[in-house]
């Protein structure tokens, strides 16, 4: 009997504010007098509050600083990372403190940039050259490797002569039909257009 009076699934609806006015009043009146439903209601609220908190993580302080630095004027963009790992890929973003220290134009870091950029370009050109030559060689090899080449001089078997030789030796076997062998020999093999046959 008591089971009918407990809130059951309506606890979740009550926490979510999904009950109508009359139902909400009746549920709250029941909770006021029912310790077990009250405890269930409190647990439901706690769980949902925790889930709601976890759903929106707070950004870390470090990440916030880095994002803010991106919007600051002063430093030129860092060099683009080449497609091949010719240089370490990690320091693409300067640390916030360092960026402030080297923020003035004409600093020591800027003086080294053109030389570094030249090296990168040379490496890039060299890589492109190597790739082009490799592509040319592989393309030529792919074309040249089209069909397997067998050893030896080219031979064209004398088809008619071989058929006659076959008939000549077969005619010596017992129970052969001489007419068949004679006709085969005279034509060098009975060659005729394909027909349905059977």
């Amino acid at each position: 009997m008591r089971g009918h009076n407990h809130l059951g699934r309506r606890i979740s609806a009550l926490v979510d504010g999904e009950l109508g006015h009359a139902d909400r009043e009746r549920a709250l009146a029941h909770v006021a007098h029912c310790p077990s439903c009250r405890m269930a209601l409190e647990q439901e609220r706690a769980v949902k509050a925790r889930v709601a908190d976890a759903a929106v993580p707070a950004p870390s302080l470090d990440l916030t600083r880095r994002l803010l630095v991106l919007g600051e004027p002063g430093d030129p963009l860092p060099p683009r990372t080449p497609s091949m790992p010719l240089a370490p890929l990690v320091p693409t973003l300067p640390a916030p403190g360092r960026a402030r220290r080297s923020g003035a134009p004409g600093g020591r870091r800027d003086a080294r940039r053109p030389a570094a950029r030249g090296r990168v370009n040379r490496v890039r050109y060299a890589a492109a050259g190597v790739l082009s030559v490799a592509g040319l060689v592989l393309g030529t090899a792919f074309v040249a490797g089209g069909s397997p080449q067998q050893p030896g001089a080219p031979v064209l078997p004398p088809s008619a002569e071989l058929s006659v030789e076959h008939a000549a030796t077969s005619s010596g076997l017992p129970l052969r039909d001489p007419a068949f062998d004679a006709v085969t020999a005279s034509f060098g093999g009975l060659t005729f257009p394909a027909s349905p046959g059977r």
Binding site: Q150, P154, V155, P157, L173
Partner: peptide, 19 residues
Amino acid sequence: ATVSLFEQRGRLDTGKLDG
């Protein structure tokens, strides 16, 4: 049945095979 096997040294000249 009778079967003849012919062997010749070299590789088949497939370009000149007729028929």
